[in-house]
Write a protein that binds this DNA or RNA. Structure first.
Lengths: 262, 262
DNA sequence: TTGCTCCTCACGTCACGTGAGGTGGC
DNA sequence: TTGCTCCTCACGTCACGTGAGGTGGC
C-alpha cells in the first residue's frame, strides 16, 4: 500500500518517525491503521528526494500547514540547486570525454600592493558558493550606490586552511582608489605577490581541471609557496549569460622571479 | 589542487583507488606526483555524480579509452534517468502541497477468466520499470507483426511477494481471441476475480497516492484478500505525450460481492 | 505437527569523518 | 624545545539491509 519494506517500517518505528497504531504486548506485532497511509507516503517521497530523516520528522511534527510547506519548499529548492549542479557536472564530464582539450597556459606575474574594498570572513567550504554570491552582490551594490570608481576586476583571496581544514579565511574585493567602508565592507591593502597564473574558461564547476593543471605546473617547477590562492573574475555570470564566455584567473603564490632555487 | 580532503586521500589509498607515488617507510608519509592529478580529478567528478567507488575503480582500470568512455556514459545515462525521476517527484510533491486533490473513487468489479498473450517472469522490484518497458514493447510489436486482434487494454499482474520480498512473479499481457506464442510470449488464461478498482490519473511516479487510497479503502472495508494486484493501462505514454492524460487502473483482490463477512 | 509470518538482536554496508594519541623534521 | 604536519587506529554516522535464531496462531 505504501511501498515501504518491512525492514524500513521497523526502522521508522525504532527512530520514532512512524509509530504503529498499536503494538501487541505479547507478540510484539506492529499494527498500522490506514490513517497512517498519507504520512507514510509523504515520508517515502521525502526520503526519495533524500531529505534526511531528522528533517522528515520536522515536517511531520510541523504544527500548521504553512510551516510544513515552507520546510518542504526549502528542501525542494536545495534539490533543484543540486539538480542544476549535477547537470553541469554531467555535461562537463561529457566534454572531458570528448576528443581533446586546449592545454592550460601558465604565466608568471608579480603584482604590487593593491587598495581594495573587501569583505573578509571565515567560511566553511560548503557555504562558499552561497557566501560568494551574497558578498559579490553586496560589493557591487555598494560601489554603485556610492558612485565609487572601480579600478579593476572583482577578486578573491582564499586561505590554504580553506582547502585543508575545509574552513578558513576568505576575502572578496573590488580594487578602488578612495577608501570605502560600510557594514562588513572595509578598505584594506592586498599585499603584492609573485604569482603563477592560469585562466579558466567556462563554468566554475569545471575549474578543478585548471586548478589541477596550474598546481601541477607549480609543483613540477618547484617554486611553490604557501599562501592564499587568488582568483580574479574577468567575466562572471553577471557579465555574460554564455557559459563558455566565463573567465576566471587563478593565481598561485610562488617564489619571486629572482629567487634562487635552493 | 584536487579539492580532495586528506581523509579522503587516505581512504582512497586504503581501498586502492588512488595509490601514492611513494610512501616513506619510516614516517608513513604519502607522496603524490602531479601525474596523478588527472586521475584524482576524474575520481572526484565521478564521486560527485555518486558513482560507487567500485565502479570508479573499473573506470580507472579500463584498458582502452573506449571501454572507459562506455562505462562513464552508462553511468551518465543512469544519472540522467534518476534526474528526470527526481524532477517528476519534485513537481509531483509541489502538486501534493497544493490546495486540494480530487478524492480517489473506488468501484467493485468482477471480471471473468481472460485469454491473454503474456510475458511472465520473476523480477526484482528495482528492475521492474526497465522490465516493464521491454516487455510491453515486445508484446505490442508481436501483436502488430502477427496482425493479432487485441481485445482490450494492456494489463499486468503483480504477486504480493514483489512488494514484501522485493522479488516476485510479474505478468504483462494483452487480451487476445486466438492463441499467440513466440519466444517468451505465451498464451495463458488469467483467472477471473473480484476486485476493488481505482483509476490513477497522471504519471506513474505519483501512483503511490492512489495505491494508498485504494489499499486504505479495502482495509477499512475488511474485504481484502491476498492475491496478485492487477493493473490495466488505459492510457500509457505510448498513447499520449501529455502526462495528465495518463490513466492506470489499479485492481485489488477482494472477497466476492456475495461473500458473507465472517 | 507443519508452515507461515512476525519478532528481536547483532552485525554489515557504504564512503568517508571524528578524535585520541603518537611521531618526524624544521 | 615548541609548533606543525603528518601518521595510525578505533570508532562514529546515516539509513537502512542481512541473517541467525526464536515465537504465536492457524
Amino acid at each position: 500500500m505504501t511501498q515501504l519494506s518491512i525492514k524500513t517500517l521497523r526502522h521508522y518505528h525504532e527512530v520514532g518517525l512512524l509509530e504503529p497504531t498499536h503494538v501487541d504486548e505479547a507478540s510484539g506485532y506492529r499494527f498500522y491503521a490506514t490513517d497512517l497511509v498519507p504520512s507514510a507516503l509523504l515520508i517515502r517521497r521525502l526520503r526519495t528526494l533524500e531529505m534526511p530523516v531528522v528533517d522528515v520528522r520536522s515536517v511531520l511534527n510541523a504544527q500548521d500547514g504553512s510551516e510544513r510547506n515552507s520546510l518542504i519548499s526549502k528542501h525542494l529548492e536545495r534539490m533543484e540547486g543540486t539538480l542544476r549542479q549535477t547537470q553541469t557536472v554531467v555535461s562537463d564530464l561529457r566534454v572531458m570525454l570528448g576528443p581533446s582539450h586546449a592545454p592550460v597556459l601558465v604565466e608568471r606575474r608579480s603584482v604590487p600592493d593593491t587598495l581594495v574594498a573587501a569583505i573578509t570572513e571565515n567560511v566553511a567550504i560548503g557555504e562558499l558558493v552561497y557566501w560568494w554570491q551574497e558578498a559579490s552582490a553586496e560589493l557591487r551594490a555598494l560601489a554603485r550606490q556610492t558612485g565609487t570608481r572601480v579600478n579593476g576586476f572583482l577578486g578573491g583571496l582564499y586561505a590554504p586552511e580553506l582547502y585543508i581544514e575545509e574552513f578558513g579565511e576568505v576575502s572578496l574585493f573590488l580594487p578602488i582608489s578612495e577608501p570605502l567602508n560600510s557594514g562588513r565592507v572595509s578598505t584594506v591593502l592586498v599585499p603584492g605577490a609573485h604569482l603563477a597564473v592560469a585562466v579558466h574558461r567556462g563554468s566554475y564547476a569545471g575549474i578543478d581541471r585548471t586548478y589541477g593543471a596550474l598546481g601541477s605546473w607549480v609543483a613540477d617547477s618547484g617554486i611553490g609557496r604557501t599562501g592564499p590562492i587568488r582568483e580574479n573574475y574577468l567575466l562572471t555570470s553577471a557579465d555574460t549569460s554564455e557559459e563558455q564566455q566565463l573567465r576566471t584567473e587563478i593565481c598561485w603564490p610562488v617564489t619571486g622571479p629572482d629567487a634562487t632555487n635552493h
